[in-house]
Design a protein around this nucleic acid. Structure first.
Length: 569
RNA sequence: UGUCCCGUUGUGUAAUGGUAGCACAGAAGAUUUUGGUUCUUUUAGUCAGGGUUCGAAUCCUUGCGGGACAACCA
């Protein structure tokens, strides 16, 4: 396949966030500086929704000649793992983006965060609380009803300082005490009702080891991490909009009294991506993996970046997709057809066309010399002349697709049937004379004659015939396994039903393994992730578990099939 | 029965008070040694009412609809 990269860096269309940044720049904010960040929690693999965010954040960096940080929000050692850190770095790089400097970690800021927490305590803005999780939930109130104040809320600064220090020193068990911000239990914003800043977790952390047994909550960490890094624009999804006042409150407290406070990040929210016929939450995806409903995080049916990669998607196609879905604030569900359009668009330009017969039936050319073999020249990619041509062997015994023959074909069937004529791509025009069936009524052989004057390139080959079929030589072809995929869920929004678990909608036929596929001999040296168009069928990608002894292909996406559409009517 | 956010063809996204456009999907046709590609053509939209204005998708207002928020998750 072509290794030429498609430069799509200038295609990126504008969106409301770009406009806001333009406005900020025009007003001279941040001294003309722009810095964004992509802040995943390393508790799962990245999915296509993250790809949207990655393209947005790194895309802003490209557009404004700025940089984008990769920062791991690793504040919860219970759920996080280096496996995820590694996969996230690999996925971002594979998508084609480079972050500024080394990857950053919220855990790099634990010391600073601790210092600031002490400062808040000293200001009387934070206190150690001993309520249980249940008690806190009970006294938190509801969105329409104010909460109650904790009985520990008015401890002295000295006592809070002492207790917090002892929390840090490991004197208490998990859950015994927490540090809370002292804000307003009656706030209409639930996040302002004395949110938790620190909790006790006696657990080894992938970066800080056993240094800490108290870990800051996301809400106490995220805004300050952005501030520390000098992020100018904190782009995040809509659900964090209600957190914004809290982030601002923390920064207000921390920066109060600072002589020349540094610029603060501006948070701008956008609507997360939803794709129909799949789920898009790490929790759901984890469940699919853990319950072995799919192979792994990189199962080709998964909407993960690694799954799409293994399925045969290219970084260019995913970037094109991110660009086409746009960025806005209203809820959206994107049709997978758009994703499929993007990958077809890309693969059409770059993949070599090869002959592959997925469900083979033997075709015998009765008037072709028994031992003759001809090498037929064929073009590698009609969309790209520079990809050249190759030859493939033709002989008396071929395989064609079982679908390409009908015993009693309807009128508009432009393929093979008794008495019908078709062209064999890059070879001869043949005519079906007869066929053979076994005891079960399955067709085992199709007998045809060929017209020697119609070899491709000869004048007689110009003759009009209705259909052109792909084929392989039965004496030269190689075997392969081909995996066909269908959508993982049968419902357009499997996660959108209040009373039905999303797993109820799993498509039992989402994977179909074809083990008797025949490929033309040029395919014997393919490498994992090599991509091809199987002529007339679709785009296929060599699986990561494929080997020369056992070739395995994944179907990325089918070609548009107007015949299937017409036949279905 | 709180606060906040959001309603533009089927789906997504533009139009920053001045011609409602683009893409995908759908339909019809042309071309084609892939029923692919490419190229034409085409269907279809401003949630509803009221107001401001010469002029409203855009501003105001009321209603309707959708979403977010009550983890020692992020």
């Amino acid at each position: 396949m072509s290794t030429e990269l498609i430069d799509d860096s200038h295609e990126s269309k504008s969106n409301f966030i770009h406009n806001e940044i333009d406005n900020d720049l025009a007003q001279g904010k941040n001294g003309g500086k722009v810095l964004t960040r992509f802040p995943p929690e390393p508790n799962g693999y990245l999915h296509i929704g993250h790809a949207k965010s990655i393209c947005l954040n790194f895309g802003i960096a490209q557009k404004f000649n700025a940089a984008c940080n990769l920062r791991f929000d690793d504040t919860n050692p219970v759920k996080e793992d280096v496996e995820y850190v590694d996969s996230i770095e690999a996925d971002v790089r594979w998508l084609g983006f480079n972050w500024a400097d080394e990857p950053k970690y919220a855990s790099d800021y634990f010391d600073q965060l601790y210092e600031w927490a002490v400062k808040l305590i000293k200001k009387g803005k934070a206190y150690v609380c001993e309520l249980t999780a249940e008690e806190i939930a009970a006294q938190k109130g509801t969105p329409t009803e104010a909460g109650k104040e904790s009985p520990y809320r008015n401890r002295s600064v000295e006592e809070n300082l002492d207790l917090f220090e002892r929390m840090k020193n490991g004197e208490f068990k998990d859950g015994e005490k927490i540090l809370r911000a002292k804000i307003d239990m009656a706030s209409p914003n639930m996040h302002m009702r004395d949110p938790i800043m620190y909790r006790i977790i006696h657990k080894h952390h992938h970066r800080t080891g056993d240094k800490w047994c108290i870990y800051p909550m996301y809400d106490y960490t995220h805004g300050q991490s952005d501030f520390i890094e000098g992020i100018t624009h904190s782009i995040c999804t809509l659900e964090f909009e209600v957190h914004r006042p809290l982030y601002n409150w923390f920064l207000d407290q921390i920066l109060e009294g600072e002589p020349t406070p540094a610029a603060r990040p501006r948070q701008i929210e956008f609507a997360r991506l939803n794709l129909n016929y799949t789920v898009m939450s790490k929790r759901r995806l984890l469940e699919l993996v853990q319950k072995n409903i799919v192979d792994a995080w990189d199962d080709p049916r998964m909407p993960t970046i690694s799954g799409l990669r293994r399925r045969g998607y290219t970084p260019e196609s995913i970037r094109m997709f991110a660009d086409k879905v746009g960025v806005a604030r209203r809820d959206n569900v994107i049709d997978v057809a758009l994703l499929e359009y993007c990958i077809r668009e890309d693969l059409n330009k770059r993949t070599m066309r090869v002959n592959a017969v997925l469900d083979p039936v033997k075709l015998i050319i009765t008037n072709y010399p028994d031992d003759q073999v001809e090498m037929m020249e064929t073009i590698n990619n009609p969309e790209d002349e520079s990809m050249g041509s190759r030859t493939l062997p033709f002989c008396k015994e071929l395989f064609i697709e079982r679908d390409d023959f009908m015993e009693e074909p309807p009128k508009k069937f432009f393929r093979l049937g008794p008495g019908l004529e078709v062209r064999l791509k890059s070879a001869y025009i043949i005519k079906c004379e007869s066929f053979v069936k076994d005891a079960n009524g399955n067709i085992t052989e199709i007998h045809c004659t060929y017209d020697p004057e119609t070899r491709s390139g000869m004048p007689q080959s110009e003759r009009k015939v209705k259909g052109t079929l792909h084929w392989v030589s039965a004496r030269h072809c190689i075997d392969a396994e081909v995996r066909l995929y269908d959508r993982l869920f049968m419902d357009a929004e499997p996660d959108g039903h209040k009373d039905v678990d999303f797993k109820e909608f799993i498509n039992p036929d989402s994977l179909k393994v074809l083990s008797n596929c025949k490929l033309e001999p040029c395919m014997k040296d393919v490498k994992p992730l090599d991509k091809f168009q199987f002529q007339r069928l679709g785009y296929f990608c060599v699986d990561t578990h494929s080997s020369p002894e056992k070739l395995i292909f994944n179907k990325t996406v089918g070609l548009k099939d107007s015949w299937a559409k017409a036949a279905a009517k």
